[in-house]
Computed example of a mutant assay.
Amino acid sequence: MSAIIDPFKAIADPNRRAMLIILSQGSHTISSLSRNFDMSRPAVSKHLKLLHAAGLIHVHRKGREKYCHLNGKGFDDLKKWMGYFDGFWLNRQKELVTSKK
């Protein structure tokens, strides 16, 4: 699934970031994720739909339950953007050290 929602918009919310952290530890049902938050199950479902639309998670049905897990490929744009700034700050630090010599 290609991203319908900008992944940066998806991670803008602290609840969604927390959901991604939890999912980094393994697959969870919507019910099990809901127990970690002070919000209704439908509210958790809405957050998960947005994460899915951004391509950050996969959701699959197994029996009556929906299981969510991270989609590694969905993080590519985020990694690329962060990688640019990792390199920028590393070069900036090197320039500062060199200019002090």
Rank of each mutant, 00 (worst) to 15 (best):
S34E: 11
L51S: 02
L51Q: 04
I30R: 09
K46G: 08
H47C: 01
S24W: 06
I22P: 02
L78C: 02
I22S: 06
W89N: 08
I30N: 05
F75K: 08
K73V: 08
K73D: 04
E65R: 11
S40T: 11
W81C: 07
H58C: 06
L33M: 13
A43L: 14
H52D: 09
H47K: 07
K46R: 15
N71T: 09
N71E: 14
H28P: 02
Y67P: 01
A53H: 01
L51E: 04
V44R: 12
H58K: 10
I22F: 04
F75N: 03
D76I: 06
F88R: 00
F37E: 01
H60V: 09
I22E: 11
G26Y: 03
W89Q: 08
E65F: 05
L51Y: 03
C68L: 01
G74H: 00
D76K: 08
G55S: 10
D77H: 12
G74W: 00
K73M: 04
H58Y: 12
K49E: 08
S45H: 04
N71H: 12
L50F: 07
W89P: 05
P42V: 11
Y67D: 01
M39P: 02
S40H: 02
Y84G: 01
K79T: 04
K62Q: 14
K66P: 01
S31M: 05
T29P: 07
D77Q: 15
N36S: 09
F75G: 06
K49D: 06
K66I: 02
G55E: 03
Y84P: 01
W89H: 15
A54V: 08
V59A: 08
A43C: 10
M82W: 12
H60N: 10
M39L: 11
K73W: 05
D76C: 02
H58E: 09
M82S: 14
S27T: 13
G55M: 10
A54S: 11
I30M: 06
G87N: 15
M82V: 15
F85P: 00
K66L: 09
W89S: 02
Y67Q: 05
D76A: 11
G72L: 15
H60R: 14
K46F: 09
L70F: 11
V59H: 02
K62H: 12
T29F: 07
I57P: 00
M39V: 05
E65N: 06
K46Q: 13
D76Y: 09
R35E: 14
E65D: 08
A43I: 08
V44K: 10
M39R: 15
L78A: 01
K66G: 03
V44G: 00
T29W: 05
S32K: 15
R61V: 13
